[in-house]
Amino acid sequence: MEHLFGRFYFDFSPTYVGCGLICPHIVNCSVLFGAVISWGFLWPFISTRAGDWYPPDLGTNDFKVSIKAIWNSSTKQQNLPVTKDSSESQVEQQKRDAVFLKDSIPTWFAASGYVVLVAISMATMPLIFPPLKWYLVLCAYIIAPALAFCNSYGTGLTDWSLASTYGKIGLFIIASLVGTNGGVLAGLAACGVMMSIVATAADLMQDFKTDYLTLSSAKSMFVSQLVGTAMGCIIAPLTFWMFWTPDSPYKAPYAVIYREMAILGVEGFSELPKHCLALCCGFFALALVLNLIRDWAPSKVSRFVPIPMAMAVPFYIGAYFAIDMFVGTVILFVWERVNKKDAEDYAGAVASGLICGDGIWTILSAILSILRIDPPICMYFGGS
């Protein structure tokens, strides 16, 4: 693997190639476009401003990495047009709609369940985390649905959930509101609440999408989700104690990072790198402009306009998966030109095989690692 610009490289991952086969061409191209802008130009340019825009002694994995999430979050909260798949016949689509909607959950039931959860959280969380007052819990639950929609839409586009990024919004807001009198603890607790809501919504959307495609029962899946959530209420606290013990062998490096972000929220944003707000506003405006063009321009023009939501993902996590996904879309593009019918029928099966095979290999790789068995050969491409 060759790091061209920071994290601009590819690792021949079958999983991401498979995702490229499934995702629409415009999504894959948008992801690659965002990777080129961020890791090809923007971050290398920012790195040359060390000592001017930010302290020069920060490492590549230092806390400044989390600053990217701040302006990324601002560019990911826009309403985007949905890409429709015209390859499926009308009859098949009507059948899928009928099966999926047969088990639809009434709106009043969903709203009532959310209200009950809000009430329970407002009553219990201040007892566990005293600085997190009940009205702050209420604010977190009011903000979370809008962020959950954004994350669910982005996950549907790219198969990548950025729940942690959206959770940082709650962290900074609540920590700054509480201030020095318990703001760190309150911000971290609010971050956990919002991350749970946002991540669960994205997972639920992915499962519902699977139900729709496989003609399965959405209600059965939802009940299974409830059972799993109930189990998590018991298993998660027990797992937490594995990390809470001072002499625990399991490290939690992100705990330090999130604590530093909470301290930043308490102390204010005066210590942020120079031009942070300008970059945030600039990319926010760019996202609005691109969405307006996609919504109002003729289809022959709008279909070539990149999707800001998909562009934003490489800014945060790196460009490595963007190239792999683009390889997948190139394979699908050529396949469609050679035999469009076979591409429509078998692309999903090929992608599933690549993703599942790569996932199963991680189990074997973990076993080999535990047994301390090293690969017989390691290949590396170095720069000239």
Rank of each mutant, 00 (worst) to 15 (best):
H3S: 07
T15I: 12
Y16R: 07
C19D: 05
G20M: 09
L21T: 10
C23F: 14
P24K: 10
A35E: 06
A35K: 04
I46K: 05
I46E: 15
I46R: 13
N61R: 06
V65R: 10
S66E: 15
A69S: 13
K76N: 05
Q78S: 03
T83K: 12
D85M: 15
S89H: 13
E92H: 12
E92F: 12
Q94W: 10
D103Q: 07
S104W: 01
I105S: 13
S112L: 11
G113P: 02
G113D: 06
V118Y: 06
V118H: 04
S121D: 00
M122L: 01
A123C: 01
P130R: 01
L136M: 01
I142M: 02
A144Q: 06
C150N: 03
N151S: 00
S152H: 01
Y153F: 07
I173N: 02
S176R: 11
T180K: 11
G182E: 00
V184F: 02
G187S: 01
L188M: 00
A199S: 15
D203I: 12
Q206L: 04
T210L: 10
L213M: 15
L215H: 13
S217R: 06
S220H: 10
S224I: 15
S224E: 15
L226E: 12
I234A: 13
L238D: 12
W244D: 09
Y250I: 15
P253G: 07
A255K: 08
V256S: 09
G265N: 08
L272P: 08
C276E: 08
L277Y: 12
A278D: 10
C281T: 08
F283I: 15
F284M: 14
A287P: 06
A297C: 12
S299C: 07
S299M: 12
K300G: 10
K300Q: 09
V301W: 06
V301K: 02
S302G: 07
M309Q: 15
V313L: 07
P314D: 01
A319T: 08
D324H: 01
G328C: 06
R337M: 10
K340A: 13
L354N: 06
I360T: 04
T362C: 00
I367V: 14
L368H: 09
S369P: 03
I373A: 11
D374M: 13
F381A: 06
